[in-house]
């Protein structure tokens, strides 16, 4: 699914990713943990193609093709989804309009027929019901005036709608109450399949109680300093990053 080799990237002229190696096979869930400023969000932006994040070395293959060559929208249309650490507000654009426009853009890319307003609404309602998310936010402008938790729920809803092949979640659990945390985990678990993979950035073990990862990695100072199975997360919680990174 994803093959990252010696990936280096700079932001604002400063090297942040200093040689990342990571392979994610179809069906696998990888958790990435690490101290603030380690480069976790940077990794998610580089993978999704954000402007200003310059790749200076290494390669990334996604489903066997060069990911770094694609525009951000092409990556999205090919099934890569990023749940943002800080979802962005778009004033004046109703969430429903935003979702429908994007959803149809993706369908068009794949050569599928676009959904009309009614069909689309039906689909969204199905997803909100499944996840237990209130659909009144569909009428509101994208993320405008949403609480922190609502913004994150909105990301989960979008993920459920787009049904991506590769889910990147950047601290989707931060700032969530326990119910919302379950919604987020449920969103991932519902999509979990032998064909889909996920990279989950988090600071807390509690999310991993609900989404059990196949692998856990520690990212510190732009490098993966340690990898292990789900027990690594427990160990981290106990000892902190400093001890693990030093080890």
């Amino acid at each position: 699914m994803l093959e990252i080799k010696d990936l280096r990237a700079t932001v604002g002229g400063k090297e942040i990713l200093k040689g990342i190696n990571l392979t994610i096979k179809p069906g696998e869930i990888h958790a990435v943990m690490g101290p603030n400023g380690a480069g976790k969000s940077t990794l998610s932006y580089v993978l999704s193609g954000r402007a200003g994040y310059e790749v200076t070395g290494g390669s990334v293959l996604y489903k066997g093709v060069d990911l770094l060559d694609m525009s951000p929208d092409e990556r999205a249309c090919r099934g890569l989804f990023l749940a943002f650490q800080y979802p962005v507000e778009i004033p004046g654009v109703a969430s429903a309009t935003f979702l429908k426009t994007a959803f149809n853009a993706q369908r068009k890319f794949r050569g599928e027929e676009e959904l009309d307003a009614m069909q689309f609404l039906k689909l969204v309602r199905k997803k909100t019901t499944e996840l237990g998310i209130k659909d009144d936010m569909l009428k509101r402008a994208v993320n405008v005036g949403f609480s922190g938790g609502e913004k994150k729920r909105n990301e989960v809803l979008q993920m459920a709608l787009f049904e991506p092949d590769l889910m990147l979640l950047d601290e989707t659990d931060s700032g969530l109450d326990i119910d919302a945390l379950k919604v987020a985990a449920d969103g991932v678990n519902r999509l979990r399949s032998p064909e889909r993979s996920a990279l989950i950035i988090t600071h807390y073990q509690r999310l991993l109680d609900y989404i059990v990862p196949d692998f856990v990695h520690v990212l510190a100072d732009g490098k993966i300093v340690k990898s292990g199975d789900k027990s690594l997360a427990l160990e981290l919680e106990e000892k902190g990053y400093a001890e693990i990174s030093a080890a």
Binding site: S48, D73, P87, Q106, Q158
Partner: peptide, 8 residues
């Protein structure tokens, strides 16, 4: 970028 990440 947010819009593009959703496929636009």
């Amino acid at each position: 970028f947010y819009c593009q990440q959703r496929g636009l």
